[in-house]
Nucleic acid binder design. Structure first.
Length: 427
RNA sequence: GGAGAGGUGGCCGAGCGGUCGAAGGCGCUGGACUGGAAUUCCAGUAAUACCCAAAAGGUAUUCGUGGGUUCGAAUCCCACCCUCUCCGCCA
């Protein structure tokens, strides 16, 4: 949510910033709504004040043993007027809130202009895409040898956009997640957290997935309304919802390995081959809760933490700064990490690191007590994949493939693979 | 699933129709004491919205959430959520 004060006092500036994303804000309509809200609020407050002071008078009169009847008569019509005003106020409040919850975050000045991902700016590139003396295969061909990667079985069990992994491939998948967790907890100062995979509407509203992006989520049938998490960012970030964090506890650095569930409602026909885009995938997620003045340094640092995963795995990648039109709803600035996939001959997103500033904190009422002011102020929240496990598996398979279709195990993963040097060698 | 208890400020906890934004304690801030500190003592210390150019000040709202009763609700009624205890069941 945007700062309502800013929205009120500088709607022009807000509109201009949102315009960079291609989002139109009707300043005139907003001003009219604001005007109406103010009017009704003042009227309602006055009526309530009237009622309160008269009720108090009744209380005093009763205490003094006086006659209360005439006072009661005076208040008779107040109740109806007040009820009407309160109803009106609630309605206009709801309207304001709906508008506020639907607006994306303001962009940081450093975000490149541009309507979509074609305008993303490459920041740096690490590692050389491998050259093969043979025709490189994609992960589907490599994985399906020996039934390690089975889309047919997954289709039978759950339908399209699911995968079944078996044997060494399943282990490699697990090894990747373990390796990432150990790296972030052991060397980057994150605390490992285990979180619920089903969360409430309020939780998803806190991080910004709701109310706007409900079609992208899976909901669970049952008495209670619960949604499957689309990313661990949701439960991790909401850990500080409705709380005031002690200044000394910041920054909080949290990491969790969870499955993620996405309906991919708008992605028909996109990435239908392989396990690039699935309804269910694992991800190791990083979240930081920081002091506002530290959030942009934290963004660079977190990007580095995600890069370290790819670096250790020896995977070629590049870092891109997302263009205005490509930055996510809650984010003020985002870097994507794109890993080289020989099977596709191009870089594909494997991690996304975002600074949401106070956008989520404001929705969540997540604050810290600023020693400088002595008052509770909103924290800044950041999240980043460190990294997507499924796509990392794809990247390892394709980048480490050998002429016989086997796949060399990256050095960093060998301790997690019982020392195995290659998989799929003898299938 | 059965029976019961409870959700109050940064934290703990009293209050159970009017004088309650809420006793008391802890924590925090300032002051006194001290060479300095601890102890002790004194004082202050919730959030949000709105009015106001700002400060000061004022008004409103907030005692889990949402409804209701009432002139008036932390306090009474209803529903829901959450926590805890005991029993049962269970990985």
């Amino acid at each position: 949510m945007l700062d309502p004060k800013l929205l009120r006092t500088e709607p022009g500036r807000v509109a201009e910033n949102l315009g960079r994303r291609g989002v139109a804000l009707d300043v005139a309509a907003l001003a009219a709504l604001e005007q109406r809200r103010k009017e009704i609020q003042i009227r309602t407050d006055l009526l309530r004040n009237e009622r309160n002071s008269r009720s108090k008078a009744i209380g005093h009169a009763k205490g003094a043993g006086g006659d209360v009847e005439p006072l009661l008569a005076q208040v008779a019509t107040l109740g109806q007027q007040l009820a009407a005003a309160e109803g009106e106020f609630a309605a206009v409040q709801a309207e304001v809130e709906e508008l506020a919850l639907g607006l994306p975050n303001l962009l940081h000045d450093s975000v490149p202009e541009g309507r979509d991902e074609s305008a993303n700016v490459e920041v740096r590139r690490r590692g050389e895409p491998p050259t093969f003396a043979f025709a490189a295969q994609d992960h589907v061909a490599l994985g399906e040898r020996g039934g390690g990667l089975d889309f047919e079985a997954a289709g039978r069990i759950a339908g399209a956009r699911f995968a079944v992994l078996r044997g060494e491939l399943a282990r490699l998948h697990r090894a990747l997640a373990q390796f990432m967790l150990d790296l972030h907890t052991g060397e980057h100062g994150y605390r490992e957290v285990y979180v619920p995979y089903l969360v409430s509407r309020q939780t998803l509203t806190g991080t910004g997935q709701l109310p706007r992006f409900e079609p992208d989520l899976f909901a669970v049938k049952g008495e209670r309304e619960l949604f499957l998490i689309p990313t661990a960012e949701v439960p991790l970030t909401n850990l500080v919802r409705d709380s005031i964090v002690a200044a000394d506890d910041l920054p909080l650095r949290l990491v969790a390995h969870t499955p993620c569930f996405r309906s991919e409602a708008g992605a028909h026909g996109k990435d239908t081959r392989g396990m690039i885009r699935q309804h269910q995938f694992d991800k190791v997620e990083l979240v930081q809760i920081v002091r506002p003045e530290d959030s942009y340094a934290a963004l660079e640092q977190m990007t580095g933490h995600a890069e370290a995963v790819l670096g250790r795995l020896g995977l070629p990648y590049r870092v891109v700064a997302l263009a205005a039109g490509d930055v996510g709803f809650a984010s003020a600035k985002t870097y994507d990490l794109e890993v080289w996939l020989p099977g596709q001959g191009r870089y594909r997103e494997i991690s996304s690191v975002s600074n949401c500033e106070a956008f989520q904190a404001r929705r969540m009422q997540a604050r810290w007590r600023n020693p400088a002011s002595g008052r509770p102020e909103f924290v800044h929240t950041l999240n980043g994949s460190g990294v997507a496990v499924g796509r990392a598996l794809v990247a390892v398979l394709e980048n480490y493939q050998q002429v016989d279709g086997s796949v060399r195990v990256p050095d960093a993963l060998r301790p997690y693979m019982g020392g195995l040097e290659a998989i799929g060698a003898a299938v």
